[in-house]
Design a protein around this nucleic acid. Structure first.
Lengths: 256, 256
DNA sequence: CGAGGGATTGAGATTCATCAATCTATGTGG
DNA sequence: CCACATAGATTGATGAATCTCAATCCCTCG
């Protein structure tokens, strides 16, 4: 098994700088004072473009980098011997992917781009030094990890205890709110939605056939519909109710 | 809704000190040099006894403390409006429970003792200062959180993609290895197992009736059996195989 | 215009939940 | 020490939710 060389295309010109970064509010450096950001910049090994459906890292393999998602959607997942796949997390702009406490350990999960993507890469090896030097960044990382834990636990609750339609309602409501928050569009009722029905199934623990039937049910009930890579929400209140998605606590685990 | 006052009984005499702690190897202070431990001790607000089936903290309520489990089993869970419950994690000696990045936030989950328990309490309010003062402890906390994330993701994979018998095999194999590791008994084939069949169902997303039938199946296949609060493993290899539990990576996520 | 991946629908099989009843172990009060 | 109460374990019967297999359709892209 050779290490993975993801097909990352370095951006040579027009790289954004950390201090001008448009998603700074979301990312690792939220709350980090201006004067610390030049420091940050030094640790960034560059920005990379990645087209859709490309591997970022693979379970059981080593990855030299961790990334901040600057643009695009990334799926983080685990695979079983029988080929079944569980999507653990959908990473969106501002999210950190690939962080693990032990630098020398192989990855615990795989990552794949769902859309064209821009990633900011940080050398894993340099992280301990960065964290030692900058408490604000360390604190921020802790908060992001805590947010991820919360999302993971909520998904566990959903997958363990809900019916198919409730699982899908929860999953879509969460993404709907995350995207709206990231792009400051609180009033819009549709978002770009690049997941296939099979992807939704891998995230919710259902087969794509059953996802299809359940999406029809959601459409017929007038709650939401997905077509041509767009999620349109027709009744957000009923959708959240059905999926036990508590809008009032969004801020506690959608950390932007 | 009033804040919960868990029925914690302070241990007045014979409190263990952090520097003599028999589970130091497991707990928050693993790798923390001797001279830092007096510092630690100052932040501990005391040891508490708790009998079985008592609430430690409750979802949506505030908790002034976080705890290290010194002795006993604690279930961390979330509840739905319809009464269904998902156990997120079984905390064992050495585990930290109740840590959340935001000090002022309400708890995201509930905790209940499954056995008689001894907890070491730390005042949540003091944590930022402790972390500021001691990098080793901060690092250790990060590792424990990372381990918990890994366990949670593995459970997500299991619950999302496995059949009932595979889920239970995985769940029991994990606990079996964790207990054996904690108590340094690599060769023993049975452990104390205080969970009811309903608890197992709440952890794996199954009804207690189906758990019962599945346990019978596991017994009849000669893999494992549970009786009178004891889990006896008869064929650990087949059990791990069935539950897709990878013994070889135990050290990466059973962090003791 | 053809190829291919995703979406859709149908039919039948399987897994698991639900309802209901009995059984067993454990602990408690008299 | 016994009678009773109670929680957990066990079994059966039935039905619902979801999966599997198979076929067709539709959109997009080259």
């Amino acid at each position: 098994m050779t290490d993975i060389k993801p097909e990352l295309i370095p951006i040579q010109h027009n790289q954004t700088s950390c201090s001008n970064c448009s998603i700074r509010r979301l990312a690792l450096f939220h709350g980090v004072p201006e004067e610390d950001l030049s420091c940050t910049q030094n640790y960034r090994s560059g920005q990379y473009k990645l087209s859709a459906n490309r591997e970022v890292f693979r379970e059981c393999h080593h990855s030299d980098f961790l990334y901040t998602v600057y643009l695009g959607w990334i799926a983080i997942y685990k695979t079983l011997k029988n080929g079944k796949r569980q999507i653990l997390k959908i990473a969106l702009p501002g999210d950190i992917i690939g962080y693990q406490a032990h630098n020398d350990a192989a990855m615990n999960y795989s990552g794949i781009s769902l859309t064209d993507t821009i990633l900011c890469a940080f050398t894993r090896h340099d992280m301990p030094e960065l964290f030692r030097k900058n408490k604000n960044i360390t604190q921020r990382l802790t908060e992001l990890n805590s947010r991820d834990m919360n999302l993971c636990q909520n998904r566990l609750l959903t997958i363990g205890q809900h019916s198919a339609i409730e699982k899908i309602a929860h999953f879509c409501a969460e993404l709907f709110y995350r995207i709206k928050t990231i792009y400051h569009e609180p009033n819009i009722n549709h978002i770009n939605f690049p997941l296939s029905q099979e992807d939704i199934g891998d995230a919710t623990g259902l087969t794509k056939i059953h996802v299809n039937r359940t999406l029809r049910e959601l459409r017929e009930r007038g709650l939401m519909e997905i077509s041509s890579r767009t999620l349109k929400v027709n009744d957000i209140d009923k959708l959240c109710e059905l999926g036990s998605f508590d809008k009032s606590t969004v801020h506690t685990y959608i950390l932007y």
